[in-house]
Design a binder for these strands. Structure first.
Lengths: 336, 336
DNA sequence: CTGTTAGCGCTTTCAG
DNA sequence: CTGAAAGCGCTAACAG
């Protein structure tokens, strides 16, 4: 066993295939990217040799030369928030279908981190999807002019976006509660930077006004179980008999917080969540606004692919609407 | 408005910075990668110019030249399975902390797809984490010799791996059930290719043998809510009075299936889940084996970074152990 | 400390 | 239809 320099099982390059097949490197390249430019026999022979050698085109080298990286990036505020996994999954699948790889970023609800991640990705992707972005419009616009960019649940004019319109669902929730006899409803809000949050809050206020109900609001700082939990006392203090929560994680926390201070749901208080994602399994099963996050993920990816194909920057605004799913967390208010 | 060729706001290259700063390209490069090799003033001047021009090193070009891509890949069987999001999140965060980008792949429980994704990633990453891989040992070994590879919940000798050892938790579950008076326990199994599944099944069998209980098993083909649901009848048919399910998604399905055929839990039948991830919110709250998926994700990433640093391929086997969390889905069997 | 010189692996005119 | 040659943007010896 001499210390002969083991040539380190290097990945075969286009050059090796070329000499082995007795053609030029250009021909090998074309055998993979533009087979139509070659005689069928040549293509066949080259491919065969390549296969035998276990050759795989080097994506990175290719990207350097063409600018086409074959990658996308998706950034979400919180991977572990149950709203996002179906979205992520669908986006990944759609990307994969078109032979793209997907980078995933978790911004932790932090605009600065989101910006940093975006910067890291930008150099090696052909496009980006920002889900529930916490960046401000200016930052988004700035990035959008460097790379194709699609938004989910963020409404910036001129930038392709897919929006899950929960306003319809929230209005239906208010109607539902009004019909049950509630006179005052409180909105437990989520992150201020969230478009969905603003949309829901506003829809609630308007629907209440229309129906002649009182509308209050309390803030669950972060959209977490704990945030919902902590807001329970404040929610009750508003005097409302029903709450609509920003999302189901908050709603679930609220449920737990109410249980802790012995407020029976739905006997004494009604709760409605948003994004039907865990609501079937809560106790009680939660009345909620339906969810289409997987569809949103897929649509955004498809949009991005379209933008790449047709450089036309048409102002797309893809809206998915929602409805109310009535379960067991809502009932008539007591003592009225 | 003449059609003067707008030079397409191209990203500034190292060359532009070099001429603007009156130095060579090598110097610019070094100002970013090896500032210690340059005089402080030069570094300063170059960086200033670069900043003014908005120069960002091109990752791809750098990777082509150095082989260091600054990327990792993580592949999971199902992003939407609640076991994985915390793991993904933690892994992403850990990678980000070391300035790495993370590709995410979803294998859909399909070995062929997993292999394909891996192939796609391999060319542009420095290492890979396979969580609950469905590949066979040979395939894993093959990939591991091309790139640093870390496994989660898969025990292949010689390959760095982090294992969540649920055997302890399952044994505790059996003890718990035995103490309650159960004489026969059924395991509702998950994917055959899953190491965790084999481990849990085996732990259950052994613990039952030790405690003198009967052990049965029924298969929930896919580890889904529906799979658990469908297995309800078969579970009851075994004559057992308690079940331990592969994971909580299956357990939750089982709960729903049992409810549908009017089997009261825990009155008539007890259920234990695995991976404490949604169990606090089921009805009834589920007795379960604790979960450490986030820790596993972070540990795997850290391991990968270590492997990269010290090319020492020591045979690491990082084990996280578990315990039983008793909640409301277990009780003494009726009529005994 | 800094510049010169070769590439990394692949694509892409431009000629034949 | 195929080959030769010139890069993509950056890094890495090797000289000074």
């Amino acid at each position: 066993m001499g210390d002969e320099k083991t040539p380190r099982h290097d990945a075969p390059t286009i050059g090796r295939v070329a000499t082995m097949a007795g053609v030029s490197r250009a021909t090998v390249s074309r055998a993979f990217t533009r087979p139509d430019m070659l005689s069928p026999e040549t293509v066949d022979r080259v491919r065969k040799v390549a296969a035998k050698l276990g050759y795989t085109p080097n994506q990175v080298a290719r990207a350097l030369s063409t600018g086409r990286h074959g990658n996308f990036a998706l950034i979400v505020p919180d991977v572990a928030n149950p709203f996002f996994p179906p979205l992520i999954r669908a986006a990944q699948k759609r990307a994969d279908l078109s032979d793209f790889c997907l980078f995933l970023g978790n911004s932790d609800e932090d605009p600065a981190l989101e910006d940093k991640l975006l910067g890291r990705f930008l150099g090696q992707v052909e496009g980006v999807v920002l889900a529930s972005s916490r960046l401000d419009d200016a930052q988004i616009r700035r990035h959008a002019e460097r790379k194709p960019l699609v938004l989910i649940n963020r409404d910036v004019a001129g930038i392709p976006r897919v929006l899950i319109d929960t306003a319809g669902g929230v209005r239906a929730a208010v109607d539902h509660l009004a019909r049950l006899g509630h006179r005052s409803i409180v909105y437990v809000s989520g992150p201020a930077a969230s478009w969905s949050n603003r949309q829901r809050r506003q829809a609630l206020r308007q629907a209440c006004a229309t129906a002649g109900l009182e509308a209050a609001a309390v803030a669950a700082q972060r959209p977490t179980f704990e945030g919902g939990w902590r807001s329970a006392r404040a929610v009750i203090a508003t005097g409302a008999t029903a709450a609509v929560a920003f999302d189901e994680v908050v709603a679930q926390g609220l449920l737990a917080g109410l249980a802790e201070i012995d407020v029976d749901v739905p006997g004494r208080f009604s709760v409605v969540g948003c994004d039907d994602v865990i609501s079937a399994t809560t106790t009680p099963p939660m009345t909620t606004v339906s969810n289409r996050s997987a569809e949103a993920g897929e649509a955004a990816m498809t949009l991005l692919l379209d933008v790449l194909r047709t450089r036309a920057v048409s102002d797309v605004r893809y809206v998915l609407d929602t409805h109310l799913v009535v379960r067991g967390s809502t009932a008539a208010p007591c003592g009225r």
